[in-house]
């Protein structure tokens, strides 16, 4: 399956925005801490990613993620 970074970014931003933060705050450099996105939210994000792209993100993968950009890059890399 080929997926572009733009598509992933758009899906990630949309999903995170549904968790509470304003979409305008969700940039590649924004940290999950700033966005008040916690580990429970990241598990939900991982479920969306798994259903959309077949990419399985485990707990140890998620622990390393600090920014929105980190998450997008990991998903794109795994989807290739």
């Amino acid at each position: 399956m080929s997926v572009t970074a733009e598509q992933v970014e758009s899906r990630v931003v949309e999903t995170l925005a549904s968790f509470g933060p304003d979409a305008s705050q969700i940039t590649r450099t924004a940290t999950f801490e700033e966005l008040d996105i916690d580990s429970l939210d990241l598990v939900e994000l991982a479920q969306v990613v798994e259903e959309e792209y077949g990419v399985i993100l485990k707990g140890e993968d998620m622990k390393e993620l600090k920014t929105v950009g980190d998450a997008i890059d990991l998903i794109v890399e795994r989807a290739e």
Binding site: L40, V43, E44, Q47, E50, E51
Partner: peptide, 13 residues
């Protein structure tokens, strides 16, 4: 509908 892996982590809380 979607399998056990898709159950929300917010279910229990």
């Amino acid at each position: 509908d979607r399998g056990t892996r898709m159950v929300s982590p917010l279910g229990i809380p």
